[in-house]
Amino acid sequence: MEKNIRCIVAKPGLDGHDRGAKVISRGLRDAGLEVIYTGLHQTADDIVESVVQEDPDVLLLSILSGAHTILFPEIMKKFKEEGINDVLILGGGIIPDEDIAKMKEVGISEIFGPGTKIQEIVDYIKSHLKR
């Protein structure tokens, strides 16, 4: 039996544009993944707490407001403090090219921009699981 992959889809920051996050959640479900959706306006603490309790294989962070420059590093810092290092962390939303490198530096494995196919994300997840 293939392992059930668990993922958390979280929306940090204040933007309410959850169409992408929801479409992805549903798409991942239809690709056979178990998706925990945590809703809007997640603080870094909320996200870390969810990851601690749910023990997912993957965390997908979606943000469209431009707050990623502050929030992504903040979240990653908290993961480091908790010693969480076996979760694959992905980002999505409107993130300019020049920021992508910086986001990868702090530990986001990949960034998926607008127009990404769900299958691309699924394929990426399946080939990059950390455990």
Partner: peptide
């Protein structure tokens, strides 16, 4: 967004969002 959700720019909820 902080104005839209009724938070001051200094609120922790506004972190990263000010003027964005």
């Amino acid at each position: 967004l902080p104005t839209i959700y009724g938070y001051e720019s200094s609120s922790p909820m506004s972190s990263g969002e000010v003027g964005k």
